[in-house]
Amino acid sequence: MVELVLFVLAAAVTLGGALGVIIARNPVHAALHLVAVLVAVAVFFVMQQAPLLAAVQVIVYASAVVVLFLFVIMLLGIDRRESLTEPLRHQRPLAIAVAVALTIEVAVLAGHTWTTGARTQQGTLSGGAVEVLAENVFTRYLWPFEVLAVLLVVAVVGGVTLARHSGEPAGADDLGEGRAAPEPGEVPGP
């Protein structure tokens, strides 16, 4: 019974928040709806015996990532309403058709069994999900874990490259306007 109540609440917040993200005209409101979705998904994680993932979800996703979004929205000063008129004629019917097709597919699948009776081929979850998770990250999934390190290097290098001012003299490009003045001192690399 408790599970049912929790599920209905979390599902309502998840789907309502998701609709809020795509309907809200103001990006700040969209970001706040996103927080609601992320927290509700974290509740689902707890209900599905993934407490560690729920914690990480709240700390990394709902906090850091959304703050990053809000920071950029504020930095760029685009927290104004967006016109929802669509310049591309076919775009909107197409999008709605895709969404309807996906939803029908979901409805059809929901009537059937989703899972197929496959059983675990790896470590079971019993005996403390956190220990099993940690053990698998450093054994069976060592390779993708190591490769992800490259992704973090990319994020740092890319952020630094794009975010710093170019050392080029103004007016040398094909736009010649709206650019920041070159910085006098040079900015060190990453």
């Binding site: 998840t14 998701a18 993200v21 795509i22 909107r92 996906l102 597919e105 979901v106 699948l109 929901a110």
Partner: peptide, 17 residues
């Protein structure tokens, strides 16, 4: 799983809309 699928549909529609 149905909640997940609906969430996915809403997100995909949002990207296109």
């Amino acid at each position: 799983l149905v909640v997940g699928a609906l969430l996915f549909s809403v997100g995909a529609a949002g990207v296109l809309l």
